[in-house]
Amino acid sequence: DTCAICRVQVMDACLRCQAENKQEDCVVVWGECNHSFHNCCMSLWVKQNNRCPLCQ
């Protein structure tokens, strides 16, 4: 699966965690819609949006 926000494989660290060298801290979360995201990506997304980027 791919993170619906950053488009990186969810089993890999997101771009932000890769840049900050925090790959082991990058975890996967699932929305109520069952789409998967990196927690970092979702945390930033929900500050500006309240819907899944794929379900909009």
Rank of each mutant, 00 (worst) to 15 (best):
D1L: 00
D1H: 02
D1S: 07
D1Q: 03
D1K: 06
D1G: 07
T2Y: 14
T2D: 01
T2G: 00
C3T: 01
C3V: 01
C3P: 03
C3W: 01
C3S: 01
C3A: 01
A4N: 12
A4V: 06
A4C: 07
A4Q: 04
I5K: 13
I5S: 08
I5M: 09
I5F: 06
C6I: 00
C6Q: 01
C6D: 01
R7A: 14
R7W: 05
R7Y: 06
R7G: 14
R7N: 15
R7D: 13
V8A: 13
V8D: 12
V8E: 14
V8W: 07
V8N: 12
Q9R: 13
V10T: 13
V10R: 09
V10W: 02
V10P: 09
V10K: 10
V10D: 07
V10G: 06
V10C: 11
V10L: 12
M11N: 12
M11G: 13
M11V: 13
M11Y: 06
M11I: 06
M11S: 14
D12M: 04
D12T: 08
D12I: 05
D12R: 10
D12Y: 08
D12Q: 05
D12H: 07
A13D: 05
A13S: 12
A13C: 06
A13F: 13
A13V: 10
A13M: 08
C14V: 00
C14H: 01
C14G: 04
C14T: 02
C14E: 05
L15N: 14
L15A: 14
L15F: 08
L15M: 12
L15K: 01
R16Y: 07
R16V: 09
R16N: 05
C17V: 03
C17P: 02
C17K: 04
Q18W: 02
Q18A: 10
Q18F: 03
Q18I: 09
A19Q: 11
A19P: 00
A19N: 14
A19E: 02
A19M: 06
E20T: 13
N21V: 06
N21Q: 13
K22T: 08
K22V: 06
K22W: 04
K22M: 08
K22H: 06
Q23W: 06
Q23E: 05
Q23K: 12
Q23I: 05
Q23N: 03
Q23G: 11
Q23V: 06
E24K: 13
E24T: 10
D25G: 13
D25S: 05
D25L: 03
D25W: 00
D25T: 07
D25M: 05
D25V: 01
C26F: 11
C26H: 12
C26T: 15
C26I: 02
C26S: 11
C26V: 09
C26N: 13
C26D: 08
C26Y: 07
C26G: 11
V27R: 14
V27E: 00
V27F: 09
V27W: 08
V27A: 04
V27L: 10
V27Y: 15
V28A: 14
V28W: 07
V28S: 08
V28L: 10
V28Q: 14
V28K: 15
V28F: 11
V29D: 15
V29S: 13
V29W: 08
V29F: 07
V29I: 11
W30Y: 14
W30Q: 15
W30F: 07
G31L: 08
G31K: 14
G31Q: 11
E32H: 05
E32Y: 04
E32A: 08
E32G: 12
C33F: 02
N34E: 11
N34D: 14
N34V: 04
N34R: 07
N34Y: 05
N34L: 10
N34T: 10
H35S: 02
H35G: 02
H35V: 01
H35A: 03
H35T: 00
H35K: 01
H35D: 05
H35L: 00
H35W: 00
S36D: 01
S36N: 14
S36Y: 07
S36K: 15
F37E: 01
F37C: 04
F37Q: 04
F37K: 01
F37L: 12
F37A: 13
F37S: 03
F37I: 04
H38W: 00
H38L: 00
H38P: 03
H38D: 01
N39K: 13
N39Q: 13
N39T: 09
N39D: 13
C40N: 01
C40K: 09
C40Q: 02
C40T: 04
C40P: 01
C40G: 02
C40V: 02
C41M: 02
C41K: 03
C41R: 01
C41T: 03
M42N: 12
S43R: 05
S43K: 14
S43A: 08
S43D: 10
S43T: 07
S43Y: 02
S43H: 10
L44F: 06
L44H: 08
L44T: 14
L44K: 12
W45Q: 15
W45Y: 02
W45P: 13
W45N: 08
V46R: 13
V46H: 08
K47T: 12
K47W: 06
K47F: 02
Q48D: 10
N49F: 04
N49G: 14
N49T: 06
N50F: 02
N50H: 09
N50A: 12
R51V: 09
R51D: 14
R51G: 14
R51I: 10
R51H: 13
R51S: 14
R51L: 14
R51Q: 07
C52Q: 01
C52N: 02
C52M: 03
C52S: 04
C52G: 03
C52K: 02
C52E: 03
C52V: 03
P53D: 03
P53A: 07
P53T: 04
P53C: 04
P53E: 04
L54R: 14
L54K: 14
L54P: 09
C55P: 02
C55I: 02
C55S: 02
C55W: 03
Q56V: 12
Q56T: 14
Q56G: 11
Q56R: 11
Q56M: 13
Q56Y: 08
Q56K: 14
